[in-house]
Amino acid sequence: MWPKALCVLVLLAHCCLCVIVKDGDYEFSLDSVKKLKELMDASHSSHQASQGDISDVEAAEMCASPELPEAFKLLCAAPNAAEIFSRLEPIAQNPDVCDVCAFAACSGC
C-alpha cells in the first residue's frame, strides 16, 4: 500500500511543479510567478500605481532587486519588460487560477 501511495504523491508533486507560464518566447514556472507577486506588490505600494500598470521604472526596480527570481533575469534585458510584467501580474495576483489552466498563458496542467 505504501509504495502506491508514495508513487501517487510523487506524481502529484511533479504535476504541481510542471505548470509553466508563457509570454511570447519567455517561459516561467508558476512558482517563480508566485514569487514575483511580492516584488509587484512592493513596487505598486512605493509608486501608488494601480495593478496592471507596471511602468518602465517599476520594471527596472524589480529587475534590480536581489529577490527577483532567476527565471526573470533574461526578461529584464528585454525592451518590453514592463509590458510583459504587466501581463504576468494577473497570474501572480491569482495563481490558483493558473493551477487549473484558466489563463491561456498557463500550460502543463
Rank of each mutant, 00 (worst) to 15 (best):
S46D: 06
C63H: 01
N80C: 03
A71E: 10
A60R: 12
L88F: 06
E83T: 09
A71I: 00
D53S: 13
L88P: 02
A64F: 12
D56S: 13
C63K: 06
D53R: 15
V57C: 07
G52D: 02
P66D: 14
A71H: 04
E61M: 13
G52K: 02
Q48C: 08
S45V: 11
P66G: 09
S46Q: 12
F72I: 00
C76H: 05
A78T: 03
M62F: 01
D56K: 10
L75N: 07
V57N: 14
S86G: 06
L88Q: 05
E89H: 12
S50D: 14
G52C: 01
E67F: 15
S65V: 03
K73C: 04
A82F: 02
S65N: 08
Q48G: 09
C63L: 03
C76I: 00
S86K: 08
D56G: 14
L88D: 01
G52S: 01
E83C: 08
E67N: 15
A64R: 06
A49M: 09
V57H: 14
Q48I: 05
V57G: 13
S86I: 03
E58T: 00
A60L: 12
V57L: 15
D56R: 11
S50V: 09
I54W: 07
R87A: 06
A49L: 10
L88G: 06
D53P: 11
F85R: 02
L68V: 00
E70L: 05
I54C: 04
I54H: 14
M62D: 07
E61W: 10
A82N: 02
L75E: 04
H47Q: 09
A64G: 13
S65Q: 10
R87Q: 08
E70K: 14
E89Y: 06
R87G: 05
N80Y: 09
A60S: 13
D56A: 14
L68K: 06
A82S: 11
H47T: 07
N80T: 10
A82H: 03
S45H: 11
N80G: 01
P66T: 10
E58G: 01
A59N: 02
I84K: 10
Q51M: 10
A59E: 00
A64Q: 08
S86A: 07
E67C: 13
E67D: 15
V57Q: 12
A49S: 14
L68I: 01
E70W: 11
F85Y: 07
F85D: 00
S55E: 03
S86C: 04
I84Q: 04
F72K: 08
S50T: 14
I54N: 10
S45K: 15
Q51C: 12
V57W: 12
I84N: 02
A64H: 05
I84P: 02
R87P: 01
L75P: 03
F85L: 04
E89N: 13
E83L: 12
F72Q: 05
A78N: 07
I84W: 01
I84V: 15
I84F: 00
P79A: 12
D56F: 13
S65W: 06
Q51E: 12
D53T: 15
A59T: 03
Q48R: 08
S45Y: 07
E58V: 00
M62I: 06
A60T: 09
K73L: 09
D56Y: 11
